[in-house]
Amino acid sequence: MSDPHAEARQASRLTAPAPARVRYAIVPVPRLSLQTVARRSGVHPDLIRRFVALGLVDAERDSAGRLVFDPTAPAVLARIQRLRTGLCLNYASIGLVLDLLDRISLLEAALRGRGTRSETPPWT
């Protein structure tokens, strides 16, 4: 007696991306203030607040209610600015492109993890 769902489970294992790895910091990662991120990225603080509201940049609030960012925030802001100026995309489109680029990166990492190598180099 065969399992009628075995084929579906096998197909989902082949198409599902590998789960994201969780990293635990031994030393707490320093958080950046809004002013520091604005200075390092060259983006006005009001525009950064807008990006946070649109979900383009991740931020948290500290105990005083101020926005704090990961150290990678200036690089994310630079990427957003390159997409905006280079491709003339609106902010909603930039969110979609960022999601797709993140998905591509996850799929490429899953391929590398399995030892599968594509003949073409990654374009991202």
Rank of each mutant, 00 (worst) to 15 (best):
L89P: 03
V57Y: 03
D62K: 11
V97N: 03
G113I: 13
L56S: 05
R50M: 02
R117I: 11
L106E: 05
R31S: 13
R103L: 01
R13N: 12
D62N: 15
T120N: 15
D46S: 10
R13F: 15
L87S: 03
V97I: 02
A8S: 15
G115C: 00
L54W: 07
L14E: 15
L34E: 13
E7S: 13
L34Q: 15
L77P: 14
T15C: 12
S63T: 14
T85I: 05
P19G: 13
D3E: 09
Q10E: 11
A38K: 05
V27R: 03
Q35F: 08
I48N: 09
R39H: 00
A59R: 12
R9K: 15
L47H: 11
V76K: 07
L34Y: 03
T85V: 10
R23F: 12
A92M: 06
D62Y: 08
R13H: 01
E108P: 00
R79T: 03
R84T: 02
R84N: 06
G95C: 08
R61P: 06
F69M: 02
L96H: 12
R39Q: 11
V27L: 09
V68T: 10
A53P: 04
L14A: 08
V97K: 02
L87F: 09
I26Q: 10
I48K: 10
R79F: 02
R9F: 14
S105R: 00
G113Y: 06
R21H: 03
L87K: 04
V76R: 05
L67F: 11
G42C: 00
T15N: 12
V37R: 02
S12G: 11
A78V: 10
V52A: 02
R21F: 00
L47V: 15
G55R: 03
V57P: 10
T116N: 10
P19D: 13
D102E: 01
V76T: 07
V29H: 06
P30V: 07
R21C: 12
I104E: 03
R79I: 00
I94V: 07
A110Q: 06
L56I: 08
N90Y: 12
S12A: 11
V27M: 07
S33I: 04
L96W: 01
L87P: 07
R84I: 05
R21I: 03
P4D: 06
I26H: 09
R31D: 07
A110H: 13
D58H: 09
R21P: 06
S93R: 13
D3P: 08
A75V: 01
A6N: 08
I94K: 06
G55P: 04
V57E: 09
